[in-house]
Amino acid sequence: MQAFVKTLTGKTITLEVEPSDTIENVKAKIQDKEGIPPDQQRLIFAGKQLEDGRTLSDYNIQKESTLHLVLR
């Protein structure tokens, strides 16, 4: 499924993900596309910070959801 990641600069990245993907996995995909190390990434969805060990389905993130990427 497709999900979108919006950065603070307003850029939107499109990712191909599965509901079973972990947040860690998603961060690795963002690193592949953008070169941002996962340890600098914080992903926010519905106002919550997403934890590495959880999956997209844990957070009820469905296709075409938009996550927000904040860098630390």
Rank of each mutant, 00 (worst) to 15 (best):
L8D: 12
T7K: 04
D58S: 14
L50Q: 01
K48Q: 14
L56K: 00
K33G: 04
K48H: 12
S20P: 03
M1K: 04
Q62S: 12
G10Y: 04
D32L: 13
A46M: 14
L71E: 07
I61H: 03
V26K: 00
A28H: 12
L15Q: 00
E64A: 08
S20Y: 11
N25H: 12
Q40K: 12
N25K: 14
K29G: 02
N60C: 06
P37H: 12
D58I: 03
L8Q: 14
I30Y: 02
E24T: 08
L8T: 13
L50G: 01
M1L: 08
V5T: 01
L67F: 09
D39S: 13
Q49G: 07
T7C: 10
L69S: 01
Q41C: 06
T55G: 02
L50A: 02
T22F: 08
N60Y: 06
T7Q: 06
F4Y: 14
D39H: 13
I30S: 00
R54F: 14
A3Y: 10
D21Q: 04
K63V: 08
E18K: 14
V26Y: 01
P38H: 10
L69Y: 01
Q62K: 12
K33L: 13
H68A: 06
T9P: 04
L71M: 09
Q41D: 01
L67E: 01
G47D: 06
D21S: 07
S20K: 09
K27A: 02
P37R: 09
Q49K: 09
I23E: 01
Q49A: 12
E64F: 13
Y59A: 02
E16H: 11
P19N: 06
L69R: 00
L15M: 05
Q49R: 10
D21P: 01
V26G: 00
L67K: 01
V26C: 03
K48L: 13
A3R: 02
D32W: 10
K11R: 12
T55E: 03
E51T: 07
V5L: 04
E18Q: 13
I23W: 02
D39V: 09
E18C: 12
K6N: 06
E24M: 13
F4V: 08
K11N: 07
T55W: 03
E34S: 14
L8E: 15
G53D: 11
M1N: 04
N25I: 15
E24P: 02
L50H: 00
P38C: 09
L50P: 01
H68T: 12
S20Q: 10
T12H: 06
Q40S: 09
Q49P: 11
V5Y: 02
L43A: 00
V17S: 01
Q62G: 14
I30W: 00
I44N: 05
R42D: 09
T66V: 14
R54I: 05
S20L: 09
D32Q: 14
I61R: 02
K6Q: 11
L43K: 00
Q41I: 12
F45S: 03
E24Q: 13
Q41F: 14
L43Y: 02
Q41G: 03
K29R: 07
N25W: 10
H68R: 08
V70G: 05
G35W: 03
R42I: 15
R54P: 03
D58L: 03
L50T: 03
T66L: 10
A28M: 14
Q2A: 09
E64P: 04
F4M: 06
P19K: 07
I36Y: 14
E18A: 13
T55N: 05
R72Y: 11
R42N: 12
E34N: 10
K29E: 02
A3N: 03
Y59I: 04
K11T: 08
S65L: 08
D39E: 13
Q49W: 15
D52S: 06
V5E: 01
Q62A: 10
R42Q: 13
G53E: 10
E64C: 11
I36T: 07
K63Y: 08
K6Y: 09
K48E: 12
Q62N: 11
V5S: 01
E51S: 08
Q40Y: 09
P37N: 07
D21M: 12
K33M: 12
T12Q: 07
S65Y: 08
L56P: 00
G35R: 06
K33Y: 08
L50S: 01
N25L: 13
G53I: 07
S57N: 10
Q31S: 11
T14W: 08
K63T: 14
L8G: 12
K27E: 01
T22N: 04
L43Q: 00
P19G: 08
I61Y: 04
T12W: 11
I23R: 00
E51K: 10
E16L: 14
R72L: 14
Q31K: 10
Q40P: 02
P37M: 07
G10P: 02
I44K: 05
E34A: 13
H68E: 10
N60E: 08
V17P: 01
D39Q: 12
R54G: 05
Q49L: 15
R72E: 13
M1G: 03
S20H: 11
K48V: 14
R42L: 15
K11H: 11
N60M: 08
Q31W: 15
A46N: 15
T55R: 11
I13Q: 01
A28L: 15
T14I: 14
Q2R: 15
